[in-house]
């Protein structure tokens, strides 16, 4: 099973992808998936202080569970309008 990670705007440019599939690990949380992504793409750490997260399209805290097959979106500070 995998977890789908979505990236946007500055973070997508930095990583060079808008969507990644990471292997799911039992007990995964927002933070654990983000940290695995950061291990592959160290510059993600620069974004962490202002990042928000959404699991399956709902804002979620860092300790929220990420189930197998879920979509985790990493959301840099928004600037719509």
């Amino acid at each position: 099973m995998t977890v789908t990670v979505l990236l946007f705007a500055s973070l997508a440019d930095c990583v060079g992808a808008r969507e990644l599939a990471l292997p799911y690990e039992p007990g995964d949380t927002v933070a654990s998936v983000r940290d695995r992504l950061t291990a592959d793409h160290p510059r993600v750490a620069e974004f962490a202080p202002t990042l928000l997260y959404a699991v399956d399209e709902e804002y979620a805290e860092e300790d929220a569970p990420v189930p197998a097959g879920a979509t985790l979106a990493l959301i840099p500070p928004v600037s719509g309008g």
Binding site: S10, L52, P76
Partner: peptide
Amino acid sequence: WIEGPESLGMERAP
């Protein structure tokens, strides 16, 4: 890329 000063992300940032 612009980081919105009103955004929840910036509101929560140090």
